[in-house]
Write a protein that binds this DNA or RNA. Structure first.
Lengths: 202, 202
DNA sequence: CGGTAGGTATACAGATCTGTGAAGTCAAGG
DNA sequence: CCTTGACTTCACAGATCTGTATACCTACCG
C-alpha cells in the first residue's frame, strides 16, 4: 500500500497537477516532462518521489479512490437510520462529485488506458467498482430487500451509466433521472417503508 | 464521410487487425508497426489506404458504429408491432453484442483515449450514444410513454452502465439484471399493455 | 558543524512512434 | 503492350517519451 499522506511539497504539487492532467487529457497523452514543468519541479524530483510514471498513475488512482470512498462513507454516516436514503446516497452525491466535468469517470477512463491485467492501477479500478457494488449489496441486505444481488447490480449499472451518459451523450439530466429510477426500483421492493430489522417503519 | 465498403484486400486485413488490437489493447498502446506486421502488410500500404493512424482509428469507429446500428435496426424490424419489446431490443442483444469480451464498450474506451474535442473519432462516439438515446426517445414516444425524455435517459444509463459493470466490476449478470430493470421501468409506465396511439389504454 | 532531505540544472541514453521517400514487383484490363 | 492499381522493400527523418547520471544548492536539525 502506498500512503499518499505526508507528501513533500513538491510531490504534492506533482500529484495535483498529474491528477488534473491525467483526468482531463488522458494518461498516455500526458508526458512526465509536461507534468514536471507544470508542477514547477524537475523531472528528477518526480522520479525521486514516485519512482516511475506508473507509480504516479497508481498514486493518482489511489487518492481519487480514497476521496470517493471518504465522501460516500461520510454521507452514509449522516443518513443513519434511513435505509432507503442510505442506498440512494451515491446517487445524491453524483452531481457534486461530477461537478460538470465533461470527462466522465476517471476510473472508467483509466480502465480503457490500462489494458494489462497485471497493472497495479487496474486492481485499484476494479476494487473501486466492486466496492460500490458490495456497498449496495450490504445496504440492501440490511434494509431487507428480497433479491439484493440483482438490485445491487442494477443500481451499480444505473450509477455508472449516468456518468457515461452525462459525459458522452451530453445528457445533463442523467444524474437526476437515474436518481429517480433508482428510487423507483428500490421503493418497489422495499415498499417505500422503513427497515425490516429492528425499528418499525412509517 | 468515409465509405469503408469496397476496401482492397490489404486494407480489409489492416482494418480487421486494427479493430481487434485497438479494442483489446487500446488505441495508444498499439503502434502502426504492430498493426502492419500483424496484417501481413507494409506500413507503406497502411498509410496509402488510411492516410494516417487517426484515419485508421476513425475507420475503426465508423465500422463498429455501423455494425451496431445495423444489428439494432434489424432486430427492431423483426419486432414490429410490439412497442414494449421494441424498446427493450438493445437490452436483448447485449449478451450477444458483448460476447464475453472483458474490455467493455469500444466507444467508451475510445472516448477516454481521445480527449481532443475536434477529433473526428470523438464525433462518431458522441453520435453513437446520442443515436441510442434518440432511439429510446422515439420508441417511447411511439408507445405513448408520459415522460419519454427522462425514461430514455434512464434506459441509456442502464444500458451503458451494464457494459461498464460487466467489464470492470466483473458482474456477468449485469446484462440480465438491467434488462429486468428496464422492463420494470417501462412496464410501470406503459402499464404492460399495447400502444396508446390508436387503441386507448386502460 | 556536519549530515541529510528536498530540490535544481542540465545533459543524455535508449527506445519507440508516426510518417515519408524512392524504387521495384506483379497481375489485370483496355 | 502498356498503363494502372495494389503492394513490397527498406531506409530514414524527426519527434517524443521514459528514465538516468552528475553535480550543485540550501535549509533544517541534532
Amino acid at each position: 500500500m502506498t500512503t499518499n499522506d505526508q507528501l513533500t511539497p513538491g510531490a504534492r504539487r506533482i500529484l495535483d497537477v498529474a491528477s488534473e492532467l491525467f483526468y482531463r487529457r488522458g494518461i498516455h497523452t500526458v508526458g512526465v516532462d509536461t507534468i514536471a514543468a507544470e508542477s514547477g519541479v524537475t523531472k528528477r524530483t518526480l522520479y525521486d518521489r514516485f519512482g516511475s510514471k506508473d507509480g504516479l498513475v497508481v498514486s493518482y488512482l489511489e487518492t481519487r479512490d480514497r476521496r470517493w470512498r471518504d465522501m460516500i462513507t461520510a454521507r452514509l454516516d449522516a443518513a443513519q437510520g434511513d435505509p432507503l436514503r442510505r442506498v440512494l446516497v451515491p446517487f445524491e452525491v453524483m452531481p457534486e462529485w461530477l461537478g460538470g466535468s465533461e470527462r466522465g469517470c476517471s476510473f472508467i477512463n483509466a480502465f480503457a488506458e490500462l489494458p494489462e491485467p497485471e497493472h497495479e492501477g487496474r486492481k485499484i479500478i476494479v476494487a473501486e467498482k466492486k466496492w460500490l457494488h458490495t456497498l449496495f449489496h450490504e445496504l440492501l441486505t440490511e434494509a431487507g430487500a428480497p433479491d439484493p444481488g440483482t438490485l445491487a447490480t442494477q443500481l451499480l449499472s444505473l450509477h455508472e451509466g449516468a456518468i457515461v451518459a452525462t459525459a458522452i451523450a451530453d445528457a445533463p439530466d442523467a444524474a437526476a433521472a437515474v436518481h429517480a429510477a433508482a428510487d423507483a426500483l428500490v421503493t418497489a421492493v422495499l415498499g417505500g417503508a422503513g427497515p425490516s430489522s429492528a425499528t418499525g417503519p412509517t
